[in-house]
Simulated assay, not measured.
Amino acid sequence: MKNSIFTLAFITLFASAYSFAQTKSGDGYLPSVTNQPGKEFPSVNFEGKVRAQILAPSATDVRLDIGGVKYKMVKDKDGLWTGESGPQDEGFHYYQLNVDGASVPDPGTKYYYGAGRWGSGIEIPASDKEIYTLKNLPHGLVSEKIYFSEITQAWRRCFVYTPPKYLTETNKSYPVLYLQHGSFEDETGWATQGHANLILDNLLADNKAEPMIIVMDNGYAYRPEELEKSKSGGRPASAFEDVMMTEIIPMIDAEFRTKTDRTQRAIAGLSMGANQTMRICMNNLDAFASYGGFSGTSNYPSSDEIDTARFLDGVFDDGASLGKKMDVFFLSMGTKEPDPFPGSIGAFKNMLNKQGIEYEFYESPNTAHEWLTWRRSLYQYAQLLFKK
Score class of each variant (00 low, 15 high):
291 Y>L: 15
281 C>P: 01
223 R>I: 02
266 A>W: 11
247 E>Q: 06
254 A>S: 11
286 D>W: 07
260 T>E: 07
220 Y>N: 12
295 S>W: 05
236 P>V: 02
249 I>R: 03
277 T>C: 13
272 M>V: 06
220 Y>C: 03
221 A>D: 11
290 S>R: 03
219 G>C: 04
230 S>Y: 04
282 M>P: 05
276 Q>V: 15
291 Y>A: 04
253 D>I: 00
265 R>S: 13
251 M>V: 06
237 A>T: 13
256 F>K: 02
279 R>T: 15
229 K>C: 05
235 R>A: 13
239 A>S: 14
282 M>V: 12
274 A>S: 12
250 P>A: 09
250 P>T: 06
226 E>Q: 13
238 S>Q: 05
260 T>N: 07
253 D>Q: 10
276 Q>L: 15
252 I>H: 00
251 M>S: 09
236 P>K: 00
223 R>W: 01
238 S>K: 00
220 Y>L: 05
250 P>S: 01
243 V>Y: 05
259 K>V: 15
223 R>Y: 03
294 F>C: 13
230 S>N: 06
265 R>D: 14
243 V>G: 08
290 S>W: 07
281 C>E: 15
275 N>K: 09
277 T>M: 15
263 T>F: 05
253 D>N: 12
256 F>Y: 15
264 Q>G: 04
258 T>H: 10
260 T>H: 05
267 I>M: 14
271 S>E: 10
283 N>D: 13
262 R>P: 13
250 P>H: 07
273 G>H: 03
289 A>C: 08
279 R>M: 07
243 V>C: 11
235 R>E: 13
284 N>M: 06
240 F>H: 06
226 E>V: 01
225 E>T: 10
282 M>I: 12
246 T>S: 12
251 M>E: 09
229 K>G: 06
235 R>F: 12
258 T>N: 06
264 Q>T: 14
257 R>L: 07
286 D>P: 08
225 E>R: 05
249 I>Y: 01
283 N>W: 02
283 N>A: 10
229 K>N: 10
223 R>G: 01
241 E>H: 01
269 G>T: 01
219 G>W: 03
240 F>W: 06
220 Y>R: 03
281 C>L: 15
251 M>I: 07
230 S>G: 06
262 R>F: 09
287 A>G: 10
274 A>K: 03
221 A>V: 07
276 Q>H: 14
220 Y>P: 00
261 D>I: 11
232 S>M: 06
242 D>S: 09
268 A>H: 02
257 R>W: 06
275 N>M: 11
283 N>H: 08
251 M>Y: 12
268 A>L: 02
262 R>Q: 08
255 E>M: 08
272 M>G: 12
252 I>Q: 01
224 P>Y: 07
239 A>E: 08
258 T>S: 14
